[in-house]
Simulated assay, not measured.
Amino acid sequence: MWANAYLGGKFCAGIRTTSRCKGINSSLKKFIKSGNCLLELVENLDRFVKDYRSNEFIVDYKTLYSNPVMNTGLETKERSASKLYMREIF
């Protein structure tokens, strides 16, 4: 909540750092178990990082090589926003 005082007037396209961290943590919980030994922990973290990076590459590819779907009658504004933001955010 303290971040709202500093970021109150800033445009962030609906993304808050806390929500991003929560998303990463929930994904990380799928790979890490409390009963893992140190070697399993390292292997699972490595698998998580590879999976996370793979998803980022897929999103980047879709952003660069797909056409956005215009939903409103404000096509010029939507097209300029689609060039500015990634497809997921847009």
Rank of each mutant, 00 (worst) to 15 (best):
M1P: 12
W2Q: 11
N4R: 13
A5V: 09
A5W: 07
Y6D: 12
Y6P: 00
Y6T: 11
L7D: 11
L7F: 15
G8R: 12
G8I: 00
G9C: 05
F11I: 14
F11R: 12
F11D: 14
F11E: 15
C12K: 09
A13N: 12
G14L: 03
I15M: 13
R16C: 11
R16H: 14
R16E: 13
R16F: 06
T17W: 03
T17C: 13
T18Y: 13
T18W: 06
S19N: 14
K22A: 14
G23N: 10
G23T: 02
I24W: 08
N25G: 05
S26A: 07
S26C: 04
K29A: 10
K30G: 01
I32A: 05
I32G: 03
I32D: 04
K33S: 06
S34L: 04
G35M: 01
G35S: 14
C37N: 15
L39D: 12
L41V: 08
L41S: 02
L41I: 03
V42P: 01
E43V: 04
E43G: 00
N44R: 05
N44E: 11
L45I: 10
L45C: 08
L45K: 04
D46K: 07
R47E: 12
R47P: 00
F48Q: 04
K50T: 01
K50I: 02
D51I: 00
D51F: 13
D51M: 06
Y52A: 08
Y52V: 01
Y52F: 14
R53P: 00
S54N: 10
N55W: 05
E56P: 00
F57H: 05
F57G: 00
I58W: 06
V59P: 00
V59M: 09
D60L: 12
K62M: 05
T63N: 15
L64C: 03
L64P: 00
S66Q: 06
S66M: 03
N67S: 13
N67G: 02
P68R: 03
P68T: 01
V69E: 10
T72A: 03
G73Q: 07
L74T: 06
E75L: 07
T76Q: 10
T76H: 06
K77W: 13
E78M: 01
R79A: 08
S80M: 05
S80E: 15
A81I: 09
S82T: 03
S82W: 08
S82A: 15
K83C: 04
Y85H: 09
Y85K: 07
I89A: 05
I89C: 04
F90C: 13
F90D: 06
F90E: 07
F90M: 05
